[in-house]
Amino acid sequence: MPHRPTASDATPLKDAARGLRFAFDKGRATLKQALPLSLLPEALAKAAGSALAGMDQITNAAERQTRALARSLLPEDTSTTTSLDDLTDAAGAEHRFAAAFYRGMQFSLRALGVDTALISETTASATYAQSLHHGTAASDTALAARLMPALIAAGTLRDATLPATLDMTFAELTRLATFATLLALLSDDHDLTVTLPACANMALALRSEIAAAQNDEAALHRLFDEFRHHV
């Protein structure tokens, strides 16, 4: 009997494709900074430009192939309408959670001013599965409070290109984006595209409390409970 692909087969591939794109985008930005094409002699600038374009083509092709392989194993879930309750209720909860968390983090980071980031869906999935080993959480807000420090510690946000204008460190960005994403998954409106900008601004308004809470599940639980119905 042929091997039946599962979500866990495909998620690392999706992450690999995303990692490739991120590494290329970051490398390209660094190269562009280091190689000001406009200042180079014409012949050299042309050669450097061609090299960058060639790299772009290779990366695009590799990314396309990896994504296609991932899609052939598991169709990509691009839905933006979801809630933590719905996710945890179904079979394969960890993969559904990880896919929603990935999309949520993309929106959160963008709302916080970061367009290029590397988020690991595989790590989010594993972290969720691991959190279930500690028993069922008393409520969805308790689960979010349990997940938040675990997702941060596991490094679900691997890397990000921070704009010079951003007024926070990578660690704070991770905390705020993770809080905003979980808050959006708890809110009454389940459309992440509309809730996340508001959740990100709310996280910014609460930044000192979120920083002070660190790994304190009780404090995070109180914050999620206090604001989930006010997004």
Binding site: P197, N201, L204, F227
Partner: peptide, 13 residues
């Protein structure tokens, strides 16, 4: 300024 508005909203709430 959406960020300032959110800060005012959170305080008020």
């Amino acid at each position: 300024d959406d960020r300032k508005l959110a800060a005012a909203f959170v305080q008020w709430l």
